[in-house]
């Protein structure tokens, strides 16, 4: 391996590196910039209580036992309250697939930061609406 061949190899590598310098950054500043989430994104759920029939198929389908159902808690004629434990959920989509009454959906919202572990248990007040106060800690807001 002579001097010139080594020099040639070095220049070949520098050529690639030099080109790469002018490529725009591929990353984005996450909390400040939002990235694109497709329509099918399996983020947090939303429970539409009017259509729910308390059949508990979502509870049966869940492989990690993240869903609890309370059939006593009724707002309409035959619905039930759902409790989602997001410290257990693996976002597999089997519960949404199991729901035949269009009552349970995934949403493209994946911001689930919480300060306490217990706050990850989404009760009926949190799972039926998309509005949620972001976590505030030391003067900063977390999504």
């Amino acid at each position: 391996m002579g001097f010139f061949s080594v020099l040639g190899d070095m220049f070949r590598i520098f050529k690639h590196v030099f080109r790469q310098v002018f490529v725009r950054p591929f990353t984005s500043l996450y909390p400040f910039e939002d990235r694109y989430y497709p329509e099918r994104t399996r983020g947090r759920h939303i429970h539409i209580r009017e259509k729910c029939t308390a059949c508990s198929q979502c509870v049966r389908a869940c492989p990690v036992v993240a869903i609890r159902i309370d059939k006593e808690d009724k707002m309409y004629e035959k619905d039930a309250a759902l409790y989602f434990d997001y410290s257990r959920c693996i976002f597999c989509g089997l519960c949404v697939e199991a729901c035949r009454f269009d009552s349970l959906f995934h949403t493209p919202i994946v911001d689930l930061s919480e300060g306490e572990r217990d706050d990850l248990l989404y009760g009926p007040d949190k799972i039926e609406t998309l509005e949620r106060d972001p976590l505030e800690w030391r003067g900063r807001r977390f999504r």
């Binding site: 497709p38 099918r40 994104t41 399996r42």
Partner: peptide, 12 residues
């Protein structure tokens, strides 16, 4: 993968 299944790695 995300556009197809909604998840990047755990596609199911």
């Amino acid at each position: 993968f995300e556009e197809l299944s909604g998840s990047r790695h755990a596609v199911s």
